[in-house]
Design a protein around this nucleic acid. Structure first.
Length: 469
RNA sequence: GGCGCAGUAGCCAAGUGGUAAGGCAAUGGUCUGCAACACCAGUAUCCACCGGUUCAAAUCCGGUCUGCGCCUCCA
């Protein structure tokens, strides 16, 4: 299995620190609002990475934090006149709902920054002791960036370029830094803000130190994979490396994975531009499996454009798989012959090639676009080779195969049997009689009536089928 | 200004040296009372442009154009 590593800028064979196990940390959202569809991309992508790793037999320890103390949370709390913890608790709950709807599995551990303050104080203390950090007069603690010679190794920047770029960006408070590249580990509280006691001042942690501490606590000093959006490469992940490696004296993460951004109508999503969508917004119009399918239909390192038309196309594509499985399930339950014959057995052997190709695609830096195209080919293979003369075993096995591959991508393609209201069932039965009597006007009227209730009827060779839209 | 990414059919998107996967849309056909589903057929002489390397390039090298990202909170 090959993974593109931002550190080396190339694909590398994945070798875990501990055989059979993966330790993986994914930077999670700051919970000050409902998550937006841009937040959803890393969640979906790295959930898929995790699922594939597990499919390959790895035991994955997957940690993803919630940043629950931050300027934006404090601002929102002030607006609503409530405590910051009320805001963060609310949006953590909402985020978990969205994740469930996206079929993103909960992490092994979802640590909260505010529960890990002791660890942060400890790490900051160590950094000061090792002279990698220093407190300023007002109690702010800064990381001494130039003391960490490898600073810039992830983002491939050199310190002097950064120095030049930031010189014009000096803001108030900067003058107490030894160097403009130094970044904050601990900052003093302002009036009305949540705070914790520390040896330096009453205050709260800087953003970067959280992840270094939580990663170490739940996964150990050295981990296999650290992941997040590409915007986190600099400065967040660069700073994490500096903190963790300076404090622990060890290499931090072996593989750094970054997903590219999601754009809306070819522009960066932003509230001010008015092209901002939360996951909840999308869920009002689409099954969120469609959003997941959409995100996985491009490679995670390519920028992905989002638009209404593209979502429609994704919906149609996703439904092709769902319909395929549904047709196979129908055959598997209703067809006469139970055992596969010789010809079908030969076809099942042939179908194994799709599984191999699926794994090859995923082994190549999680090429989900290619992997999904293999699922489509398998669907077509199944559609072409099954019919009312198929055996239950044959249809059933093909259905299982499609469901299994989709499941590795976290895509739910088998719709649960839904219970129909008695009234609807009666209408379907009445329409059946009407069609038998060639009263097509009445049959079409019933179909229209059901359509208004969100029920679509299809008269297939195998009989009348219906689905909710 | 520094660093970096991308440009493949109407749209989306794989493919990084051996002669263009897959999906959506559209077209013709089969099936169907009709519709939907499904199947079959054709659909990029060509991969932004120019030049080079090679027996061979969408794939490597150089240049041009265009779009985008990071360098500042941000997935």
């Amino acid at each position: 299995m090959k993974i593109y590593n931002t550190l080396s800028k190339r694909k590398e064979e994945f070798v875990p620190i501990e055989e059979g196990k993966v330790r993986m940390y994914v930077c999670g959202p700051t919970v000050y609002n409902l998550i937006h569809i841009g937040n959803a991309r890393p969640m979906i992508v790295f959930d898929t990475v995790r699922r594939y790793m597990e499919h390959k037999g790895y035991q994955v320890n997957y940690v993803s934090n919630f940043t629950d103390v931050d300027d934006k949370i404090i601002k929102k709390a002030a607006e609503e006149g409530v405590d910051a913890s009320v805001i963060s608790a609310r949006y953590i709950e909402e985020c978990k709902k969205d994740m469930a709807a996206l079929n993103v599995r909960p992490a092994t551990t979802h640590p909260l920054a505010t529960n890990e303050i002791d660890g942060m104080l400890e790490m900051i203390g160590t950094l000061i002791q090792k002279e990698y950090a220093y407190p300023a007069e007002d109690g702010t603690v800064y990381f001494r960036t130039r003391r960490f010679p490898e600073y810039g190794k992830l983002s491939h920047k050199n310190l002097d370029d950064l120095q030049g770029g930031s010189r014009s960006l000096l803001v108030s408070g900067e003058e107490q830094k030894e160097d403009s590249l130094d970044f904050v580990l601990w900052k003093p509280k302002k009036e009305g803000e949540p705070y914790w006691e520390s040896p330096w001042c009453k205050g709260r942690p800087g953003w970067h130190i959280e992840c270094s501490v939580m990663s170490r606590k739940y996964l150990g000093e050295q981990i296999d994979i650290h992941a997040g959006g590409e915007d986190l490469v600099f400065p967040h992940h660069e700073n994490e490396i500096a903190q963790s490696e300076a404090a622990n004296g060890k290499n931090f993460a072996n593989y750094w994975m970054h997903n590219a951004f999601l754009n809306i109508d070819n522009r960066k999503m932003s509230k001010s531009a008015g092209n901002f969508f939360t996951v909840r917004d999308i869920s009002e119009k689409y099954d969120l499996q469609v959003l997941r399918f959409f995100m996985l239909s491009a490679h995670y390192r390519s920028p992905l454009n989002f638009s209404a038309d593209l979502m429609e196309a994704a919906k149609n594509g996703y439904e092709r798989i769902v319909t395929g499985v549904s047709n196979l399930d129908y055959l598997a339950q209703n067809v006469g012959r139970s055992e596969a014959d010789e010809q079908e057995k030969a076809l099942l052997v042939q179908a194994e090639a799709f599984i191999t190709r699926f794994d090859e695609a995923m082994d190549d830096d999680f090429n989900t676009a290619d992997a999904i195209s293999v699922i489509f080919e398998l669907v077509k293979f199944a559609n072409t080779n099954t019919g009312e003369n198929s055996s239950r075993e044959f249809a059933g096995k093909l259905a299982e195969e499609i469901v299994r591959l989709s499941d590795i991508c976290g895509l739910l393609v088998r719709k649960q049997a839904q219970i129909l209201d008695e009234e609807i069932e009666n209408l379907i039965e009445e329409r059946k009689q009407a069609r038998k009597a060639k009263d097509f006007a009445r049959a079409d009227a019933i179909r229209s009536e059901l359509l208004e209730k969100g029920i679509v009827l299809e008269d297939t060779r195998e009989g009348v089928k219906w689905k909710r839209i």
